[in-house]
Amino acid sequence: HSHMSHTQVIELERKFSHQKYLSAPERAHLAKNLKLTETQVKIWFQNRRYKTKRKQLSSEL
């Protein structure tokens, strides 16, 4: 499990705020920019979407 830097997370968050789903080319581009693997980016987005979904569910209770 590799640790992401604060800067990388900020960039991922910024991208996520604009779009929740990335196409393969977008993911490849973002990964390259942030010096991450595409898998890391993919998993981060999956986890981030899951967290957002959970938060929405709990706020509706």
Results as ranks from 00 to 15, higher is better:
Met4Ser: 00
Trp44Ile: 03
Tyr21Asp: 03
Ala31Gly: 02
Phe45Leu: 00
Lys15Val: 14
Tyr21Ser: 06
Ser5Asp: 06
His18Asn: 05
Gln40Leu: 10
Leu36Ile: 04
Phe45His: 00
Glu38Asn: 04
Ser5Pro: 04
Leu61Pro: 10
Phe16Glu: 00
Ile10Phe: 10
His6Val: 11
Lys35Asp: 15
Gln46Ile: 15
Leu57Ser: 12
Gln8Glu: 03
Glu60Pro: 07
Lys51Leu: 09
Ser5Gly: 04
Leu34Glu: 01
Leu12Lys: 01
Gln19Asn: 09
His1Ile: 13
Lys55Asp: 15
Lys53Tyr: 10
Arg48Ile: 09
Lys20Pro: 08
Phe16Pro: 03
Lys32Ala: 11
Glu13Met: 08
Asn33Val: 13
Ser58Leu: 15
Glu60Cys: 15
Gln46His: 08
Ser5Phe: 05
His18Phe: 08
Glu13Asp: 05
Lys20Phe: 03
Met4Lys: 02
Asn47Gln: 13
Thr52Asp: 15
Gln40Tyr: 06
Ser5Tyr: 04
Lys51Trp: 11
Tyr50Gln: 11
Leu12Gly: 02
Thr39Phe: 08
Glu26Asp: 05
Ser5His: 04
Ile10His: 09
Glu11Asp: 03
Arg14Cys: 15
Glu60His: 07
Asn33Ile: 15
Tyr50Pro: 03
Thr37Cys: 07
His1Asn: 06
Gln46Glu: 10
Tyr50Cys: 15
Glu60Met: 14
Glu13Gln: 07
His1Glu: 08
Lys42Glu: 08
Ile43Arg: 09
Pro25Lys: 13
Lys51Arg: 09
Gln8Pro: 00
Ala31Phe: 03
Trp44Ala: 01
Leu30Met: 04
Glu38Cys: 09
Glu11Pro: 02
His1Gln: 06
Ala24Phe: 10
Gln19Ile: 08
Leu61His: 12
Gln56Arg: 07
Thr52Val: 09
Lys35Glu: 06
His3Val: 09
Ser59Cys: 15
Gln56Tyr: 13
Ile43Ser: 06
His6Ala: 11
Gln40Ala: 05
His3Cys: 14
Ser2Gln: 07
Leu30Gly: 00
Arg14Asn: 06
Leu57His: 10
Val9Gln: 09
Lys20Met: 08
Thr52Ala: 15
Arg54Thr: 06
Leu61Tyr: 12
Thr7His: 11
Ser58Tyr: 11
Glu60Lys: 08
Leu36Lys: 03
Thr52Ser: 13
Ile10Cys: 15
Ser59Arg: 03
Val41Cys: 05
Asn33Tyr: 14
Leu34Ile: 04
His18Ser: 11
Phe16Cys: 12
Leu36Pro: 00
Ser59Met: 10
Leu61Asn: 14
Thr37Phe: 03
Gln40Trp: 02
Leu12Trp: 02
Gln56Asn: 10
Phe45Lys: 00
Ala28Arg: 09
Leu30Glu: 01
Lys42Pro: 00
Ser23Asn: 09
Ser58Glu: 13
Lys53Trp: 11
His6Tyr: 10
Phe16Tyr: 14
Thr7Val: 09
Leu57Pro: 14
Ser2Arg: 10
Ser23Arg: 03
Ala28Leu: 09
Glu11Asn: 03
Ala24His: 08
Thr37Ile: 03
Ile43Asp: 06
Ala28Pro: 00
Gln19Arg: 09
Lys32Val: 11
Leu36Cys: 07
Met4Gln: 03
Leu34Asn: 00
Met4Phe: 13
Lys32Tyr: 13
Arg48Gln: 11
Asn47Trp: 11
Thr37Asn: 03
Lys20Arg: 07
Ser5Asn: 06
Glu11Tyr: 06
Lys35Ala: 07
Arg49Glu: 04
Thr52Trp: 15
Lys15Trp: 10
Leu61Asp: 14
Leu36Glu: 00
His6Cys: 15
Gln56Asp: 13
Val41Gln: 00
Gln40His: 02
Gln40Phe: 06
Gln8Trp: 08
Arg14Gly: 03
